[in-house]
Design a protein around this nucleic acid. Structure first.
Length: 424
RNA sequence: GGAGAGGUGGCAGAGCUGGUCGAAUGCGUCGGUCUUGAAAACCGAAGUGCCCUCACGGGUACCGUGGGUUCGAAUCCCACCCUCUCCGCCA
């Protein structure tokens, strides 16, 4: 949710962000402003009536206590009349509140000035690291390598659950476990507190981080208990402090957590979804920061560095993009993507998305802090980044590490964590 | 899942035979007096959201959440959520 004061003071900026992000209808801004004006008028009227009701009640009280019902009768009659009006106005305010909130939830976060405006082709490549491997043979895509070594069983996953829910077998499974451990260790070294979180969350949490109502169809919904499977650990980790006022001295708060992630990926089909490229269930280590607003862009860079360190630990060539406005979601003010080079497919695969949400999530989730003793609570800024998502990392490791004899060599740091340095 | 108890301000804990209750009291916090300084003692301050106001200030709502009864609800009724105790079940 954006700041209502910003909407009132600078609606043009809000509209421009909507247009640049290509999200929503800019007319929503005017609708929200209109609802806001109506609501304030209604609240003022309601408060006046409530005051009158209180006055009458305080006059009636002593009379009733003294048994002077007759004297109280006309006042009671008045009070009943006011009560009816109060009820009416309450309903009006309730409706306007709901409408305004709905409109506000439709308005995406504003952009940081450094975000390039445009569509996907305006994404800015900032940095490239590592050398793409070269081969004196035709490198295979990871799904063929995985099949050859029995690392991932897509068919049986499809039988047991459905497409996009693979089994990892043997060294494939051990690799997952080693990567999760390695990523959590790296985050721990960087100062993050490790968290094991619930992987089912309630509706309020979905709203808090912005998955609801915007991306309703993307989460698996457990209807029996009205809970949602997490699409990322960002949801539980950020909602951990929902409706809290944090101690200023505790900031910044840094959490890392591993969870399986569940995404319906409704509407995404095509050749780029083969193998491990896009799954309904996958593993990811997520990094989350709660910070003071004035420091959030420094933290964005620090968080980015944390994610890059993880890729570099694996020796995978990668590049960093600053996402253009059109590629940003509802909630982000600025996002960097990290993409690793996947030699068998000859393409870049997104493995991390590092974002500053400024106060957008904090306002929805009501996470605040008190800047100093006695000061008013303010919203924190929240940030998060993958550190990292596993499947495409595994894809790149298999494709980049493949040898002429069909075996796969693992990078040293991973070999150490996994307990083996070669597959096949 | 069954039976019972309970959810009050930063914490603890009254109030719950409805009527200036945003709410006693204690602890903690902050300011002051005293002291060379500190402690103790004493005095005082201090919640959050929303609305009106340039401001000073004022109004209103909030005692788990949402409804209801009533002229009036922290106090009564209903539903839900959560915590605790006992029983059952169980990795």
């Amino acid at each position: 949710m954006i700041d209502l004061d910003l909407l009132r003071d600078d609606p043009d900026r809000v509209r421009q962000s909507m247009e640049a992000k290509r999200i929503g209808d800019p007319a929503t801004v005017d609708r929200a402003l209109d609802l806001d004006r109506q609501r304030r008028r209604a609240v003022t009227a309601l408060n006046d009536l409530q005051r009158r009701q209180g006055e009458l009640g305080r006059e009636i009280g002593p009379l009733m206590k003294a048994g002077q019902r007759d004297q109280a009768a006309p006042l009671v009659e008045q009070s009943n009349a006011v009560k009816a009006q109060v009820k009416e106005h309450e309903e009006t305010v309730r409706q306007l509140d709901a409408d305004l909130r709905a409109a506000m939830l439709e308005i995406p976060n504003t952009l940081h000035p450094s975000v390039p405006v445009g569509g996907e082709d305006a994404n800015r490549i900032e940095h490239e690291w590592g050398a793409k491997p070269t081969f004196d043979f035709e490198p295979l895509p990871h799904w063929e390598i995985a099949e050859r070594h029995g690392l991932v069983d897509f068919e049986r996953g499809a039988k047991v659950t459905g497409a996009g829910f693979p089994f990892y077998m043997g060294k494939g499974a051990r690799l997952q476990r080693a990567l999760i451990g390695l990523f959590l260790d790296l985050a721990g070294e960087a100062g993050y507190t490790e968290v094991e979180a619930p992987i089912l969350v309630n509706e309020a949490s979905g709203i808090g981080t912005g998955q609801l109502p915007d991306k309703e169809g993307q989460m698996y919904h457990v209807t029996g208990d009205d809970l949602y499977l997490v699409p990322t650990a960002e949801v539980p980790l950020t909602n951990l402090h929902r409706d809290e006022t944090l101690d200023a001295g505790s900031l910044p708060v840094l959490y890392c957590g591993y969870t399986p992630c569940f995404r319906r990926e409704a509407g995404s089909y095509g050749k780029d979804v083969r193998g491990l490229n896009r799954l309904h269930q996958f593993d990811k280590v997520e990094l989350v920061r709660f910070v003071r607003p004035e420091e959030s862009y420094e933290h964005l860079e620090a968080l980015l560095a944390d994610a890059e360190r993880a890729v570099e630990a694996l020796g995978l060539p990668y590049r960093r993009l600053t996402l253009a406005s059109g590629d940003l979601g509802v909630t982000q003010a600025k996002t960097y993507d990290l993409e690793v080079w996947s030699a068998g497919q000859q393409r870049w695969l997104e493995v991390s998305s590092v974002s500053n949400f400024e106060a957008f999530q904090a306002r929805r989730a009501n996470v605040r802090f008190r800047p100093e003793e006695g000061a008013k609570p303010e919203f924190v800024h929240t940030l998060n980044g993958s550190g990292l998502a596993l499947p495409r990392i595994v894809a790149a490791l298999l494709e980049n590490g493949q040898q002429a004899d069909g075996s796969v060599v693992l990078p040293p740091r991973l070999a150490q964590a996994a307990g083996f340095d070669r597959i096949g």
